[in-house]
Design a protein around this nucleic acid. Structure first.
Lengths: 123, 123
DNA sequence: CCCTAATATTAACAACTACTGAAATGAGTC
DNA sequence: GACTCATTTCAGTAGTTGTTAATATTAGGG
């Protein structure tokens, strides 16, 4: 390790936000894990593009509609959608032979956050 | 491939949001790549925890402060911070031997979005 | 200057991930 | 019930990623 530069080198508290032993975790373990799962699911070209497609579509989308656009095998798309589903980013509904996927509110809110920060205010 | 189930199987448009050949990409290639970089940077335990620490701290944080909390080597932390920096999630400032990292507005907005959707409205 | 401390860089490697192709499941249709 | 189509599951694999240990860089202090 190493000695701290400005604060808490010796004994005085100096940083009110770190006074006790809390030090870090405002989030619980499981909240953290869930956030990371969501973000990791989003952090991949194929999955992100698939999600954008689903979110941009009025109503819901079936797997077969994604196949020509994403340019990976149907099997890959199925796996991609399962991951998005596991992360709570899409809902799914079965109708006969088809399965329809739709964006959840969580997806909507995350994607619009990204769109907004692109538009204007980020550094 | 396969035949479409509900719409556009034959000839009628049926889906107004897909009428032309646009089909998908509202985002440019580079916007998409940048989004994925941001999200991929966030989608990892160590990086996400580091970013939470930085964002939760008033003022900025030096590398040495993160080391004991994150429980990985100093080298790993340096790399983690570089990735967060490359994604535009933290800013950095050099002061003598130390380097201080701080959350960018982008980070603030993404983290609060996640916090808010946890709190209330998502399914 | 040389020493030490803080951080960055490099190289190597184990662990994980994103695909593919093949087989399995589930649901309509003849 | 056999056939076909949409989707999922499984197994294998190439490629990527996260981590470490070692080394390099940068900066302050004797």
């Amino acid at each position: 390790m190493s000695q701290q530069p400005s604060s808490s080198t010796q004994d005085e508290p100096a940083r009110p936000d770190r006074e006790c032993c809390t030090a870090s975790h405002i989030l619980t373990e499981s909240e953290l894990a869930s956030d990371v799962q969501i973000l990791a699911a989003l952090g991949n070209d194929t999955r992100y593009e698939a999600l954008r497609l689903i979110a941009d579509t009025e109503g819901d989308v079936c797997v077969c509609e994604l196949e020509p656009v994403l340019g990976v095998s149907q099997s890959a798309i199925s796996q991609v959608l399962s991951q998005l589903y596991a992360a709570g980013l899409v809902s799914r509904r079965k109708d006969g032979r088809w399965r329809y996927y739709a964006a959840t509110p969580l997806t909507t809110v995350i994607l619009s956050t990204l769109d907004e920060s692109r538009g204007g205010n980020n550094e």
